[in-house]
């Protein structure tokens, strides 16, 4: 594979700069560490985005009527509620949840052997909207008239804070990637400046024999870009491995078990090494030209 022009050493540029010591592994280590962190920030951001979408989808189109009534009134009021809902514009379907479904909902808190028949549990009626939406306040008033023990829960009080939390989490993930990129640029700029300062005499000699700034800068830019690329590739590989080894999401899993990449999402971290190389290229080039003007 042929390297991009700025990474090639067609003119022997590389050899004119002496091999540098600690700045070499410092750059690679920084790029690796930052790429590793960026993989997790990316995974967090994607997971938060998916979560926000999932919660919104799940809660946005559904509502629940909770009916608490004397035992002999339950069936009567349930029927009245279902009749009311059937004639309400904007509601696609409504159905009373079975005892098994209610037991399944409570199982995470009370276990699977809950004696649901002996408990005064409210009846739950699940409503699915048809997409056009319904008049929440009007429905509440009608339900109060038909079934005094019915309470309409349109999930707004759950949905809003969850959606806000998920979108903020996503924002934090993206902000982390921006900060990681900035920190990478800063670290590479410092390492490049140190390397340039340490080679001030070499640079002076090169200038005196007719080397242009671009020629001298290319030697440093090439080195730092390649080091950053290799470091970031290693960090990304380790980060992806770490994400892949996280426990799989299942029905009992919480948010953290959903942290990871899915399908084409696995391709996204692969953009981190070239992005890091690009950041290193820009940072080193800017630093090199600035330092060259100072030194000679």
């Amino acid at each position: 594979m042929k390297l991009p022009l700025f990474l090639r050493d067609d003119s022997g540029t590389d050899s004119v700069v002496p091999p540098s010591g600690h700045t070499a592994w410092l750059t690679s280590f920084t790029a690796a560490a930052m790429a590793f962190l960026a993989v997790f920030a990316l995974a967090l951001s994607l997971a938060a985005g998916n979560l926000a979408a999932r919660w919104s989808d799940a809660l946005d189109r559904t509502a629940t009527v909770r009916l608490s009534a004397p035992e002999d009134q339950i069936d009567l009021q349930t029927k009245a509620i279902l009749d009311t809902l059937a004639t309400t514009p904007g509601i696609a379907s409504a159905r009373a949840m079975t005892d098994e479904e209610q037991r399944a909902l409570l199982a995470p808190w009370f276990g699977p052997d809950l004696p649901i028949d002996s408990l005064p549990l409210p009846r739950l009626i699940e409503i699915t909207e048809d997409g056009t939406g319904y008049d929440t306040e009007g429905l509440r008033q009608r339900l109060a008239a038909e079934a005094p023990g019915a309470v309409l829960d349109d999930h707004t009080r759950w949905r809003r804070p969850l959606a806000v939390a998920a979108s903020r989490l996503r924002l934090l993930g993206l902000l982390s990637i921006v900060l990681i990129t900035g920190a990478t640029a800063a670290m590479i700029t410092l390492a490049a400046s140190a390397a340039l300062a340490a080679n001030a005499q070499v640079i002076r000699t090169l200038r005196l024999v007719g080397a242009r700034d671009a020629y001298i800068a290319r030697a440093f830019v090439r080195r730092f870009t390649l080091r950053a690329l290799v470091g970031a590739a290693i960090g990304t590989a380790l980060g992806m491995l770490g994400v892949a080894l996280l426990p799989a999401a299942d029905s009992a899993g919480g948010f953290l078990t959903g942290l990871g990449f899915h399908g084409a999402g696995w391709l996204l971290p692969l953009a981190l090494p070239p992005l890091t190389a690009l950041v290193a290229f820009a940072a080193t080039r800017a630093s090199a030209f600035r330092k060259l003007r100072e030194l000679t």
Partner: peptide, 10 residues
């Protein structure tokens, strides 16, 4: 320019 100076030095 700096490039001109480099070329002159050659």
């Amino acid at each position: 320019s700096r490039d001109d100076i480099a070329l002159t030095r050659r």
